[in-house]
Design a protein around this nucleic acid. Structure first.
Lengths: 186, 186
DNA sequence: GTCTATAAGCAGATAGAC
DNA sequence: GTCTATCTGCTTATAGAC
């Protein structure tokens, strides 16, 4: 493999798959190298500070993706229910129906926690805010909207954990399907 | 430290703390040795297959603890609400109000996943069954009871993830506090 | 049951050729 | 932009003294 010129986005996608499967500590340079088809030194060329830089790039790309697939749909045009349903499809796509684990989870353990806590907190905060704003617009009192927004984030994260630990692929889609009614119910 | 004769249960508690903080891959023998005050070789004396054996002992001890603190309380004497409230106190104690992460989460990633998936699945299944049985006894139709039992497990796991990622200590206790009403409501 | 010493291998990381 | 070769330190694991 001489000059494959794999585009950066594709490289980051493959790195993301490894971090999701193995966790931060488990994602060794050997695995990351194998997944991308790049030698270690090539990885260091693209990510000078090594694994740290790769993890950061993965986190930023995930944030952008969840912003496009979920957050922007929540605050886009259309009725609150339609927007919520669009966001639900976005979550399903982002987590591939629960088969993929969440980086939030994996990057909040051990060494990775200290480095990425700010990013994690920011991501969760924005997501909660976008859901709450939609629910207020749908007519819920602000306090109730905040509470349900947190419930939604908790249900999604918990759904991913339980789905993975149970090996049951139906759990996550079923949680997502119930989300609109559960949130919008008066 | 010559012959401290630390009881096995205490050793396992200290190992548990490391696995919870660092994850399976992040829990190195150096950290495990430091936490227990035992040299590497002493650890191998107690756990001949090394880290694998330690992790297994930690998982089995956690299963026993959650059985005593939660599952047995759910199926114990008293009204369903009282039993549920007792179980909620058990969860709070087991997770120290959400400050501790769940082994379910940490052991369902990478290498650890293959080795411990059976244990994880068994634990979640028993917990779901115990909650569902209590809800049926409280008058809910079986299907609804099953669904709410899953919701409860999801809320707890998700609450731990979100609490840790947010660094907000109030989230987990607040989820626990709402659980009885949320589950028993007709 | 604990310790010291050590082995063998893999981790992350770097230098320099092409 | 990729490669090969190499380095240092840490990883798991074992042998054997006390």
């Amino acid at each position: 493999m001489a000059h494959p010129q794999l585009p950066r986005d594709e490289v980051i996608d493959r790195l993301t798959a490894v971090f999701r499967r193995e966790g931060y500590e488990g994602a060794s340079l050997a695995l990351l190298s194998e997944a991308t088809g790049l030698g270690r030194s090539s990885l260091y060329h693209h990510f000078p500070r090594g694994k740290d830089d790769m993890a950061e790039a993965v986190m930023l790309a995930a944030r952008d993706k969840i912003t496009a697939l979920v957050v922007e749909r929540l605050s886009g045009p259309g009725s609150p229910r339609k927007r919520l349903e669009a966001a639900v499809r976005g979550w399903d796509e982002f987590y591939q129906s629960g088969q993929l684990s969440c980086l939030t989870e994996l990057f909040s353990v051990g060494n990775a926690k200290q480095r990425f806590q700010d990013l994690l907190l920011g991501g969760i905060t924005k997501l909660r805010a976008a859901i709450a704003a939609l629910l207020v617009e749908a007519g819920l009192p602000p306090e109730k909207a905040e509470k349900r927004a947190l419930d939604a984030v908790v249900a999604i994260q918990g759904g991913l954990v339980v789905a993975r630990a149970s090996g049951d692929r139906s759990i996550f889609p079923s949680i997502l399907a119930e989300l609109p009614d559960r949130l919008l119910n008066p």
